[in-house]
């Protein structure tokens, strides 16, 4: 069990193993699954991720709700390339996974379905640019996984638990840790990358229009991917962050539990409760939801039992 980033970094160093190897050994020890099987399963994970991206980019049909579909392809084709091809590619891949997800297609919920676009967009776009082998990508996924485990146990990875900061924020933190580590960052820099990512997303609410994992989720995955790469870039340059990563994660957890329930995936606040959001929900036939949105409150308000326990 890893309870904190500090513990992960210290124990890996004490054991003389890399952060990736530490996570791998822990998994072998705690599940009894052999190392090769774990790595094979991560390779399969990458295959599903690639498939979800490809399907999202190729398919122009909309989701059953009509809210998403075809945007990733349009971005890939028509984006003006403000920061070059790769930037546009990364954004379109993040959106593509969410479009596949909305069509009840097969995805890897890393760490959740609503944030599934971030890790693949970042890692699959940077891999050829930075010359990472498949083997190294598997290692990077172990680092991403270790990061997500700590955040899930210390704070939350669920929108219903802690808002969007807990979902796309955790996904971005995982991606930025993986990139920083693969690019030769030390433990300190990996921690800084995670801290920088999360501080930039603190307080982000989960307000899915009509309660669907589509809008703003698809766009938030794209912006989270940008945040992940930006944080890795700054951490790798040696920029520091004065608040230790574990304390930043705890703040995210604290903000999440104090967040009004309307902003935790209930679709009763934020963009979901705007006049335009209500209209979309009404068109989708969600009459009970619209009634509650109009009342501006919900049963269960103030409830304390949210999130992984």
């Amino acid at each position: 069990m890893i309870r904190s980033f500090a513990e992960w970094f210290e124990q890996a160093e004490a054991a003389g193993v890399s952060l990736a190897e530490f996570v791998e050994r822990r998994e072998v020890k705690e599940t009894g699954v052999p190392r090769e099987a774990i790595r094979k399963r991560i390779e399969d994970t990458l295959t599903v991720m690639r498939g979800a991206v490809a399907e999202g980019l190729a398919e122009s049909a909309t989701s059953p709700s009509g809210l998403t579909g075809g945007r990733s392809g349009r971005l890939a084709a028509d984006g003006p390339r403000l920061l070059g091809d790769d930037f546009t590619t990364m954004l379109s891949r993040a959106i593509a996974t969410l479009e596949t997800n909305a069509r009840m297609g097969l995805i890897m919920a890393t760490p959740t379905a609503g944030a599934a676009g971030v890790v693949p967009a970042v890692l699959l776009t940077l891999a050829p640019l930075r010359g990472w082998s498949e083997e190294r990508l598997v290692d990077a996924m172990l680092v991403a996984g270790g990061t997500g485990i700590i955040i899930a146990d210390r704070a939350s990875i669920a929108g219903a638990g802690g808002g969007c900061q807990a979902e796309t924020g955790s996904a971005a933190a995982m991606a930025s840790a993986a990139v920083t580590w693969l690019e030769g960052g030390d433990s300190q820099q990996v921690g800084t990358a995670v801290a920088l990512t999360i501080q930039g997303m603190l307080g982000l609410i989960c307000d899915p229009v009509a309660g669907l994992v589509e809008i703003p989720c698809a766009y938030r995955n794209a912006s989270a991917a940008v945040n992940a790469v930006a944080s890795a870039e700054m951490a790798l340059a040696g920029l520091d962050f004065p608040i230790p990563v574990d304390q930043v994660v705890d703040v995210m957890g604290d903000v999440g539990t104090k967040m009004d329930v309307r902003f935790r995936e209930t679709a009763l606040g934020g963009l979901a409760a705007t006049p335009a959001g209500q209209e979309i929900a009404a068109q989708a036939g969600m009459t009970e939801l619209v009634q509650l949105q109009r009342k501006g409150r919900t049963k269960g308000e103030g409830s304390a039992r949210f999130g992984p326990s």
């Binding site: 991560i42 009840m104 760490p111 379905a113 997500g148 485990i149 146990d153 669920a158 669907l212 992984p308």
Partner: peptide, 20 residues
Amino acid sequence: MTTLFDILGPRMVGPSSSHT
């Protein structure tokens, strides 16, 4: 306790890890 493949996954049909 959260395991590695709780985070790297689940491999699933969309759209929502909690609701689907």
